[in-house]
Computed example of a mutant assay.
Amino acid sequence: MRKRVVTNIISAGFGKFASKRFHPILQKFINSSYIKLLGLDMSEFKEARDYKSLNELFTRELIKKRDIDYQEDSIISPTDSLITECGKLKKDKSLQIKGMEYSIDSLLIECKENLNKIYDGDFINFYLSPKDYHRYHVPCDMQILKVIHVPGKLYPVNLRYLKKKINLFIENERVILECKNKEDRLFYIVLVGALNVGQMTLVFEKRVETNKNRELSIYKYNNLWMNKGELLGYFKMGSTVVMLFEKNSVKLDVRPGQNVKFGQKVAKWIKD
């Protein structure tokens, strides 16, 4: 049993506040204040008064249809986010941010049998700030082989913390999805928890309960397929999504410091 640290307790407490439904007048004030404070663009969403809790606002659903790149070889951004880092792995080494490496061997717990396929592959780090759309979507037609929930700490994942906290992605709580595309090319989607992210959800796996279940859990699937653009789940508050691709399987189409939107092409599969 892992012990909970202060940031996890803070996140759980904030989660209770955010989940509480206040009187409609007070809730509208809370929602409007949050929108104004962070400068949220609500043009694709309902109005502040329509959300009955702060969590409903955090996890808001798009009401306008997004343009999605449905080309067969395209990989779309799963989120609205900032690309904090991307590029080539150096064998098993990835970048948390420029100048700060970490080992994917430590990140991808319980995936040892396939890790050599990822060595020298490509990666993209997507950072969702508290003002971003908090839902994440399927980046390409894919089969989900396995989900691993790794309990951990909940340090902030903003740029300031990324630059000073070594092995941040490894220490923080995370949910790992082991996936393949239609051509059996292996890739991983890693949902990284953060301060005030009391929950990371998956629409297809209700047994994953983050910042609550403190034991490592593994879920395997025989024939679970999802289509590009489908809803995968959501963060409660901002956080990070890391994607890691099999060697020589993709060509990236983004750069560090670039802002991307869900549905936008960020890479393409390389045909054999």
Rank of each mutant, 00 (worst) to 15 (best):
F45Y: 15
D105E: 08
E209P: 03
I124T: 09
F14Q: 04
M200W: 01
K265L: 04
V266P: 04
D69A: 13
E171R: 12
Q71Y: 12
D80V: 05
S81N: 11
T59Y: 08
M100S: 05
V147T: 13
L177R: 02
K52Q: 14
H149L: 05
E85Q: 13
F204P: 00
Q96D: 11
M226S: 11
V147G: 03
I83P: 03
E205C: 13
N223M: 10
S217E: 12
N172Y: 05
V175F: 02
K16T: 09
E110V: 06
K93T: 02
V175M: 07
L128H: 08
N114S: 14
M226L: 15
G121K: 00
P130M: 06
H137N: 08
K112S: 15
T240P: 01
Y34M: 08
G99K: 05
S103R: 09
N223V: 10
D122F: 09
T201R: 01
E171W: 11
K112N: 14
L38Y: 07
N227V: 07
R160T: 14
Y119A: 06
F204S: 00
Y155A: 01
D105Y: 01
Y102M: 10
E173Y: 07
L145Q: 03
F187D: 02
K93M: 06
K165S: 14
K268T: 07
K28C: 07
I76Q: 03
V260R: 06
L195T: 10
H134D: 08
E173H: 10
S217H: 07
I166S: 15
V266H: 08
M1P: 07
L162K: 06
I148Q: 04
V260T: 12
K180R: 12
S129Y: 01
M1W: 03
S19W: 05
Q71W: 08
N116C: 12
K28Q: 06
F14M: 14
R2M: 13
V197L: 01
L26R: 00
M1C: 09
L95E: 14
L128F: 11
F262S: 12
E209Y: 03
S32W: 04
F58V: 02
A194D: 01
D69N: 15
S239G: 11
R207V: 00
I76H: 06
P156W: 07
Q96I: 12
E85S: 06
L40T: 01
W269M: 03
N8G: 13
V254C: 09
Y234H: 09
H137Q: 10
H149N: 00
N158G: 06
D50H: 13
S33T: 14
V250C: 02
W225S: 12
I124Y: 10
F262H: 14
V250K: 02
E183K: 12
Q71G: 12
R60I: 11
V190L: 14
V192D: 04
L191W: 03
P151G: 04
A12V: 10
G99Q: 04
V5L: 15
K212V: 04
F45D: 10
E246M: 05
